[in-house]
Design a protein around this nucleic acid. Structure first.
Lengths: 107, 107
DNA sequence: CGGTTCAGTAAGCTATTGCTTACGTAAGTG
DNA sequence: CACTTACGTAAGCAATAGCTTACTGAACCG
């Protein structure tokens, strides 16, 4: 998932979907610098990564973010956040317990 | 930031830091498939992206996640999550209000 | 001191990636 | 039915990314 969001342009595409379903053409119009086929290709990558869902309506195809994916990403960073906090408090305790840190040549 | 986390190997490196500060050598030992210079290079990218902080102790250098960055990422997906929820309820209302989907333009 | 450990950097190579152009196709329109 | 709209896909290309090897430079150790 994060691999798919690694590309800045793809992130732009993805973020355009946050506020509601968009067709390929709409996304393309909102991103003049990106050709339409490029948009299609980005959407394909996003879809393969399960980051977006799509639904065909007539001749167009509407894309929207996949709630499951967004939740998973949130959970990922929540976990990281928790671990980092733990690590931080441990770090704080240690450095507090040994104030003059056994640095380089000071002591 | 997300660009930096786009690479799977780099994500591995980053995740190794979640549970506490690690030196380059330690990370390398935990990731046998990745050469030590590669680890250094990944850490450099992570540092340039402000995803990690580092502190030199003697001949080694300890890396740890940057809390600010993790919080920012959490916030990013939280926002996305909120927008997606709004979008979803709107979508639900519309489809509920108009069972046989209106085709082309606004009826 | 010399030697060793730990880490960052340089150079070069390969694989991947993202883009464009061109084409194919299904569905809506008159 | 043409014809148009909206997408997807194929092929090919240039740029980038990540890896490895080799070198350099600090800081400890004896």
């Amino acid at each position: 998932m994060l691999s798919a969001l690694g590309d800045p342009t793809r992130r732009l595409v993805f973020e355009r979907l946050a506020t509601g379903p968009r067709s390929v053409g709409e996304i393309h119009r909102g991103l003049p610098h990106v050709s339409r086929p490029a948009v299609s290709q980005h959407l394909r990558v996003l879809k393969d990564a399960a980051l977006v869902l799509d639904e065909g309506v007539g001749t167009r195809r509407y894309y929207r973010p996949n709630p499951v994916a967004v939740r998973a990403l949130r959970a990922y960073f929540d976990r990281l956040w928790g671990d980092a906090l733990d690590s931080f408090s441990t770090h704080a305790e240690e450095t507090a317990a040994a104030p003059p840190r056994p640095r380089r040549k000071k002591p």
